[in-house]
Design a protein around this nucleic acid. Structure first.
Lengths: 183, 183
DNA sequence: TCAGGGTTTGACCGATCGGACAGTTTTCCG
DNA sequence: CGGAAAACTGTCCGATCGGTCAAACCCTGA
C-alpha cells in the first residue's frame, strides 16, 4: 500500500494512463482506474496533473509533435514524391507512437473536436490527401480512411503479433491506399 | 415538447441510439442524449427497454445474428472455398449493418468482454482464421486484424463516400488480407 | 535534530450517471 | 361516452464521475 514519496510517479501515471486509454478509451477510463493501476490515490494524480484532460494532453503531446513534423516535411516535398514519403512517414509514426495513436484515433471523432487537437484533424485530412495523391475521388479516400481506421487496433502485442509483422502489414495496407489500380 | 403517445417510439429510440453509439461510443452516450435526440423523456426510454444495456443488446441483435449465420455457413464449407466466401460474406455483413458493426468493434475490447457478446469474439477469431486461411502466421493475422480494425470507421456518409466506393474499398481491403504474396 | 518543501492521503463537494416509481396523459374499444 | 390499458412524465435515489482541500507523510539539508 505505502508508496515511497518522491519518485518517477509522473512517468508511471503517463504509462498506466496510456495503456488504459488505449484499452478502454478515454471516457471509459476513470481517475480511480489509473490510480489503481499506478498504486496511488486519485488525489495524487491531480497533484501531478491539472486534471484528466491534462494527463491526456501530455500523453499525446509527443505523438502530435511527430504528426506536425511529418506534416511539415510533406508540405516541403514535390507532389510526385509526396505519396511515397507519406506512406513511410505514416507507418513510422504509427510504430513509434502506437498507444498514443490508438488513443487519438480510437476516440474519434469526439477527441478531435477538442480545440487542443483540432490541428490533428486537419493534418489527418492532409495526410489523407497525400495518401490518395490529392485526388478527391471518393473511392481513393474510402480506401485511405479504412487504412487510418485500422490503426487504432495497432496494439497487437496481446495477440502475439510482433513489430516486424505489424510494420509490414501497415506498409502493405498503406501502399494499397495509393495503388492506382481500382481507384 | 409534447409527444403523441402511441407510435413507433421503440424504432425511433433504436435508430437514434445506433447513431449516437456509433458516433460517440456506448459509454460516451448517456440516456439523456438519446432521449434528447428522440424528443422524449429519459423515463420513456426505460419504459420501452429494461435499461441502457437492453437498448444496446436489441440494437446489435440483428448484426450478431447475421454474424452467426455467416459463421455457420463458413463452417459448412471446404477449406479451399472458405476464404473467398469469408471475404464476400464479411463485406456484405459490414455493408448491411454498418452502424451496428461500428458500435460493436468501436467499443472493443470492452464490449466483447460482456457475456452477451462473448460469442462474437470467438466468431471474429474464426473469421480471422478464415481470412488468413487458418494459418497462424502472425503476419497474416496482423493484416486481417488491420482490416477488421478499419471497419469501425465504415460510417462514411458524412465524408461524402457512397455505398459503391465503400464496398469496393472493403473488398480490396479484405482481399489483401488473404493475398498469399507477402505473408 | 529539526525545520521545510515536495509528495501523498482521506474526506468531501457538486454534477451527472443509470435506474426506480407514482402519477398523469393519451389511445383504444366496448 | 367511459373505463382499462398503453404511453409518457416529473421526481427522486444511490453510485460514480472529475476535482478540491486541509492534514499528514517522508525525504533532505542545515
Amino acid at each position: 500500500m505505502s508508496r515511497s514519496a518522491r519518485s518517477g510517479t509522473r512517468e508511471e501515471i503517463l504509462d498506466a494512463a496510456s495503456w488504459l486509454f488505449a484499452a478502454t478509451g478515454f471516457k471509459g477510463t476513470s481517475l480511480q482506474d489509473i490510480a489503481g493501476a499506478v498504486g496511488c490515490s486519485k488525489a495524487a494524480l491531480l497533484y501531478h496533473f491539472d486534471g484528466k484532460d491534462a494527463i491526456l494532453a501530455e500523453l499525446l503531446a509527443p505523438a502530435v509533435e511527430a504528426f506536425e513534423t511529418l506534416d511539415a516535411r510533406l508540405a516541403a516535398l514535390g507532389d510526385e514524391a509526396v505519396r511515397r514519403a507519406a506512406v513511410e512517414g505514416f507507418v513510422d509514426l504509427v510504430m513509434r507512437f502506437r498507444r498514443e495513436v490508438t488513443v487519438l484515433y480510437g476516440d474519434l471523432p469526439d477527441l478531435l473536436q477538442r480545440p487542443a487537437f483540432a490541428g490533428v484533424q486537419e493534418m489527418t485530412d492532409r495526410l489523407l490527401a497525400a495518401l490518395t495523391g490529392r485526388s478527391a475521388e471518393p473511392a481513393a479516400r474510402a480506401a485511405a480512411l479504412l487504412v487510418l481506421g485500422g490503426v487504432p487496433v495497432a496494439c497487437m502485442e496481446p495477440c502475439g503479433i510482433g513489430d516486424d509483422e505489424l510494420r509490414s502489414a501497415l506498409v502493405r495496407s498503406a501502399a494499397r491506399a495509393l495503388d492506382p489500380t481500382g481507384a
